[in-house]
Amino acid sequence: MNDVLARRTLEEPASEQAIEDLHGILDQLWNDAAFVPALDQMAFATAVIEAASNVVQHGVPAEGATLLLGVELTVSAERLRAVISEIGAEAMDPVPDLDPPPAEVFPEDGTLPHEDESGRGLFMIRALVTTVTVEREGDTNIWVLSRDSGGA
């Protein structure tokens, strides 16, 4: 059963406002797909925001282009899927490490972990969804996140 039961999209300049708007369409998606268990909603939304924030913070616009964030969220009976596009962007260099090491464990010597969140964000995405891929198509970098959900 891969019929799409709920769908929301967004496309706008990659900015802080786009992240706030994305939170808004995630809320709307769950209104339309209330059958999705709370844990799946929470995990998927967190991964989607991490990937979109990565676009806003690290995306590099191609010469003469305005960097856009495109998002398509779909819910089917057993799967949550997000296509997150970095439109009008230079190719990612380096390509994000989608199999990062486990989050650092609190060191025994009492020092605190690094504040750097980009590695931690990628680790979270990987841990919160079932599959994640990043591809290049034309002038667009495309993240595809999917999470199996036992909702319906």
């Binding site: 939170h23 939304a45 967190t46 925001i49 991490e50 924030s53 605190l112 972990p113 690094h114 504040e115 750097d116 969140e117 980009s118 931690r120 964000g121 979270m124």
Partner: peptide, 19 residues
Amino acid sequence: SFMDSSGLGALIGCLKLAR
């Protein structure tokens, strides 16, 4: 209601600052 890795990084930074 929501925290991402940026928010977590900020909390860790604030903890360091306080200590």
